[in-house]
Computed example of a mutant assay.
Amino acid sequence: MTVRAGREFLAIPGPTTMPDTVLQAMHRPAIDIYSKQMTELTESLLRDISKLFATKGKSYIYIANGHGAWEAALTNVLSRGDKVLVLESGRFAIGWGNAASLMGAEVEVLKGDWRRAVRPHEVEERLRRDTEHRIKAVVVVQIDTASGVQNDIEAIGKAIKAANHPALYMVDTVASLGCIPFEMDKWGVDVAMSGSQKGLMTPPGL
């Protein structure tokens, strides 16, 4: 016989446990996808997501997990053969780099340590050496789930600017958005992506 007391929790980094209010909101009939109600709901969500990222730029919702968002971010700003600098701080930083490699990008990993955050001065030094500006994008994870490392996105953005380098600054906020501050425009982030299943505490797949 199994005895359970209270609510069952999934004790893993993600998906996180959804609040009852979120679960209850899902128990409603689907609305007409061609209706004004659907259009207004979608537009309001996109506006709210931009506020969450702290950007005046446009936001988009993909029916995909974080890996799908990685691919969407990469394919919309890079071409085959473009060089990407991956800032290592854990499994998911390397994973985003692997995704870029599979899509035809040339990937260079700025070696780091899973026990510490990316060092902004090392990023600046590497970009200063790229005098031909072959590096088209710098990718980093704000919080890497595997290592638990939290990177200083603002400081890394300042390092890129100090190097006077034109590379796009791309940030994965899957494990951080809604949990810790993220200021996309203020910190000079060009492209950011996230997922619905962690800090946002909603069903996975967006």
Rank of each mutant, 00 (worst) to 15 (best):
I33Q: 15
I33W: 14
I33A: 15
S35R: 05
S35P: 09
K36Y: 00
E40T: 10
L41P: 00
T42Y: 06
T42C: 06
L45I: 11
L45G: 03
L45M: 15
L45V: 13
L46Y: 08
R47W: 05
I49T: 10
S50G: 12
S50N: 04
S50P: 02
K51N: 13
L52I: 11
F53G: 08
T55Q: 05
T55H: 06
K56R: 12
G57N: 03
S59F: 01
I61R: 00
Y62G: 07
Y62L: 15
Y62I: 14
Y62P: 00
Y62V: 10
I63E: 15
I63Q: 15
I63G: 01
A64N: 11
N65D: 15
G66H: 11
H67Y: 06
H67F: 08
G68A: 05
A69P: 05
W70A: 11
W70P: 08
W70V: 02
A72L: 04
A73D: 09
A73S: 14
L74M: 12
T75H: 03
N76S: 14
V77D: 04
S79N: 12
S79A: 04
R80K: 15
G81A: 08
G81L: 03
G81F: 03
D82W: 03
K83Q: 05
V84S: 01
V84M: 08
L85T: 08
L85S: 11
L87K: 05
E88Q: 15
S89Q: 02
G90N: 07
R91F: 13
F92K: 08
F92D: 12
G95P: 01
W96K: 14
N98L: 13
A99C: 07
A99M: 13
A99G: 06
A100S: 07
A100H: 01
S101Q: 13
S101N: 12
M103N: 14
M103Q: 12
G104D: 02
E106D: 05
V107P: 04
V107L: 04
V109P: 02
L110I: 06
G112L: 04
W114G: 06
R115D: 09
R116H: 12
A117S: 14
V118T: 02
R119K: 15
R119Q: 14
P120S: 12
P120I: 07
H121A: 08
E122R: 12
E122N: 13
E122G: 09
E124D: 09
R126N: 03
R126Y: 06
R126M: 12
L127I: 03
L127K: 10
R128Y: 08
D130C: 11
D130M: 07
D130Q: 04
D130R: 12
T131C: 03
T131V: 13
H133Y: 00
I135P: 06
K136C: 03
A137T: 11
V138S: 06
V139Q: 03
V140E: 05
V140S: 02
V141A: 09
I143P: 03
D144N: 07
D144F: 08
T145V: 10
T145S: 13
S147V: 09
G148K: 14
G148S: 09
G148H: 12
G148P: 02
V149H: 09
Q150W: 04
Q150N: 10
Q150M: 02
Q150E: 13
Q150H: 05
N151L: 07
D152V: 00
I153D: 07
I156A: 03
I156T: 01
I156V: 11
G157T: 10
K158S: 05
K158T: 05
A159Y: 09
A159K: 10
I160Q: 10
K161C: 10
